[in-house]
Design a protein around this nucleic acid. Structure first.
Lengths: 112, 112
DNA sequence: CCAATATACCTTGAACTAAAAGGTATAACA
DNA sequence: TGTTATACCTTTTAGTTCAAGGTATATTGG
């Protein structure tokens, strides 16, 4: 059986993506650059990460998409559903918790 | 060849462990509880994570170990070398960078 | 005008990490 | 005396990310 929990720090790509889409609807290719820029190059997620996450979030009803033709090319714009906003909130809490846990260790009063 | 960079957010187990050992020397089994406690249960790393990391850090010269017999059982205490302290500093900077990048996205001024 | 680059979508395969479980052995507790 | 806790460790499985490949249209530059 061996049912395994996800690694303790996953869900960050999903979090970033949901947070950005909550502000403005965007398409995949745009998100790749947007994440790189918004994190000051600290995090770069390739298309191989972004597209699968978008698809799985849409399947789960957290995102809705609409296609737009822009100058001959097709863009698929994504935006949050109510479920997506709930998911965002949950991931945000998860993140704060682990971020806080790590901060506890790093910022604990200096050497004995 | 396909040589691959480590995932953007790895190195956290190593960071926590180095930070704790920089304060007090400890043994593996103790570190497992210590990480769980110090992070307020936000992060629990099992022995299957801790021991391999300890061994690889020792192989790389970041940790030194000494065995102590305590009441019939043997404990292997680890402490940082100079190289370990440098490694700690690097990981701490890496972490701050990605943590900051994520904070930028999360705390960016609200909806348009 | 034609080649290279950028935009835009997507998938597959390899690499890496962490989780779960298994394995040994001693000591303490009930 | 058997179960739980301490203490070490490894192996297997699962999950995530990375790198690269694959298609197609538009734009830029030589």
């Amino acid at each position: 059986m061996a049912q395994s929990n996800p690694p303790f720090m996953s869900g960050v790509p999903e979090l970033l993506l949901l947070r950005l889409l909550d502000r403005n609807e965007m398409y995949g290719y745009e998100l790749v650059r947007s994440i790189r820029d918004a994190t000051g190059e600290a995090i770069t997620l390739g298309e191989g990460v972004i597209y699968p996450v978008l698809h799985s979030l849409e399947r789960n009803g957290a995102l809705r998409s609409k296609r737009k033709a822009v100058g001959g090319r097709t863009r698929v714009y994504y935006s949050l559903t109510k479920k997506g906003r709930q998911r965002l909130e949950k991931l945000q809490n998860d993140w704060r918790r682990i971020q806080g846990g790590i901060a506890n260790v790093l910022e604990a009063p200096g050497h004995a």
